[in-house]
Simulated scan of single mutants.
Amino acid sequence: MNKNISKLLSALTSIGLVILIFIQVDIDQCSKIFIQTKVQYIYIVGFVLSPVLLILLVFRWKLILQDLDVNFSFFALFNSYTKGLLWGELTPGKIGEVLRVRYIYKYKKKNMIGLALLSIFIDRICDLLVLFIITIVSCIYFINNFNINYMFSVLMVAIVSVLSVFLSFCFRNKIGNGLKKIINVFLWKYRERFNIQYDNIIEGINKLNAKNIFIYIFITFTIWIVKVVSLPLFTLSLNIEIPLLYLFAVGIISVTISLLPISIAGIGTREIIFIYFLSYYKISPEASVLVSIMFYLFGIWSIALAIIMNVAYSQFKKLQSYKRFII
């Protein structure tokens, strides 16, 4: 019941924000700006940045699994990651990405489900940790250079989030033992199965070292750089000139706030943020909304491109098998 109420509130918030945006934005003006878009910049984002982003995302996950002694080919993981991205986009906080674990289960490696879940958890934590670190830097940038004092609230949330991740890692054994006791008491029917996976998870955590974590964090920083680099290309396509650091900071803040369960998939909140911050450089609400939509569609297009690549690879494999059969 509470989940339904939460979904209803998110949907109503999204509708309300969209209505507010429609009040502020002239649709005809949006159309005129969009018609004048320089498509060469869009092509760079769609056919250069998107493939690079996908390769980095899958490579990071493969590296994490490899360090946990779970080995799959890059293309096999690409298939699973594609489905995870799709479900992640449709669920709050991208929790749907956990469905990537189904690939491990599909190949009957049930004893590795705990490690697979751990790999996805590490993957997501790296993403959020780096996002919150860059958010802290972005908030400090806005506060120091533009006296946007209410950014203190976002800054505090980001700092608390980073500290929570750090403390969780430091006290991971105590947290894990506490969770194990809770599971054993309330879900005693699954106690034996849980204990096996729990032991696998603890063993996997112990395999990781500072060098592994540093590599994951470095790759994650690179991933976020690729994501925000799309923004200046979008603004250039719309003939908008904004300082790069300012634009990067706006993009990061918009992603962070859109993670909050305020609206569905951040619809409305992201656009409001772009309208507000880009107004500091006299950018019209129409152009701001277009930049915001393009930034969001970059993620959607990356998922679509991953699906296309996955289907193409599957068809190629079938064709190769068919040729062998004929020969």
Rank of each mutant, 00 (worst) to 15 (best):
C30M: 15
K32L: 14
T37I: 15
T37S: 12
T37Q: 10
K38T: 10
Q40V: 15
Q40C: 11
Y41M: 10
I44V: 14
V48E: 00
L49Q: 03
L49R: 03
L54M: 12
F59I: 01
R60D: 02
R60F: 07
R60L: 11
W61C: 09
K62T: 11
L63V: 09
I64W: 10
D67I: 11
V70F: 00
N71C: 08
F72P: 04
S73N: 14
S73R: 13
A76N: 15
L77G: 06
F78T: 04
G88A: 05
E89H: 14
E89Y: 14
L90Q: 00
L90F: 10
P92W: 05
K94C: 10
L99M: 13
R100Y: 09
V101N: 02
R102F: 15
Y103I: 09
Y103T: 12
I104V: 13
I104Q: 01
Y105K: 08
K108Y: 09
K109P: 04
K110N: 13
K110F: 13
N111I: 09
N111M: 08
L117I: 09
L117S: 01
L117K: 00
L117A: 04
L118P: 03
I120G: 03
I122H: 01
D123L: 03
D123A: 03
R124Q: 02
F132I: 07
I133V: 12
I133W: 00
V137H: 02
S138T: 07
S138H: 01
C139D: 08
Y141N: 03
N145W: 09
N149A: 14
M151D: 04
M156E: 12
M156I: 15
V162K: 02
L163T: 06
S164W: 11
S168M: 10
